[in-house]
Design a binder for these strands. Structure first.
Lengths: 129, 129
DNA sequence: AGTTGCCTTGACGCGCACGTGAAGGTTTAG
DNA sequence: CTAAACCTTCACGTGCGCGTCAAGGCAACT
């Protein structure tokens, strides 16, 4: 299967797939005329990347998962590096939840009383995803 | 007080203060030589902006608060527009909390069992702050 | 042969927010 | 006198995940 079909089946674009390749996430062999040639395994890889991005992991963070699948493992998250990424992200999410909870309290307090003087902490990190 | 002193007292930079002015958030009168001349009221405004930013409001969102203070109100959040910003931000935060909770569950599940096939929702929005 | 539609590489653009940097000039403080 | 602080304007930076041309080659159908 060529890049256009893979893009369609994965619900993405050819540009994104070429970008993944340029980032070393998706190696495709070439046909004699230079076209990229993909198979079901590649589709699997792309779907893995997409589902990880969907939970807020960066492309960079998907590397270990891709490597794990390429190493022949059945699921991308059974390797130590992948699990480490999960743990790190979980810690991030927890920090984010905590911070957002505080922000929520702040907003509620301000909405409830007219009088403020509850000064919040300076922001030390960003919550994202 | 001139811009350097205000920056120091507010814990920011002169560039940021000039930027706020260019955004219409901080009007300062000028001395004959063209220098900006600030007073305690301006310091109050800057602190208001900072504390709102600290809870994740954008500079744009701080406008109503600044306007409210400038209109002579004692606290920046006693005006309807300001309170509306609070309510909007609260809704954002709630949505974000919900989403992050789901992400957290996903990560926990993946860490607990090796076998996955729990596909998350595609991301529809970004949580930030 | 022509048209359509796939494919290739490469360089640059964008969107967002919040500023920062640099250049080049004037004023003030010590 | 000199260094520091101030002024202006324009442009650039940051991060990420692509998008947008541009210029051309290859394939398949009519």
């Amino acid at each position: 299967m060529r890049i256009g079909e893979l893009a369609k089946r994965a619900g993405t674009t050819t540009r994104a797939l070429r970008f993944y390749e340029s980032e070393g996430l998706l190696d495709a062999p070439r046909t004699p005329n230079g076209y990229r040639e993909y198979d079901e395994h590649h589709l699997r890889l792309v779907r893995e990347i997409q589902s990880l991005q969907a939970v807020g992991l960066s492309l960079e963070d998907t590397r270990p998962f891709v490597a794990c699948l390429r190493a022949g493992h059945e699921s991308g998250d059974s390797c130590p590096d992948s699990r480490e990424v999960y743990r790190r992200k979980l810690a991030e999410v927890d920090a984010c939840l905590e911070r957002l909870g505080a922000v929520r309290e702040f907003l509620l307090a301000r909405l409830a009383f007219q009088d403020p003087c509850l000064v919040p902490e300076p922001r030390e990190f960003q919550c994202s995803s």
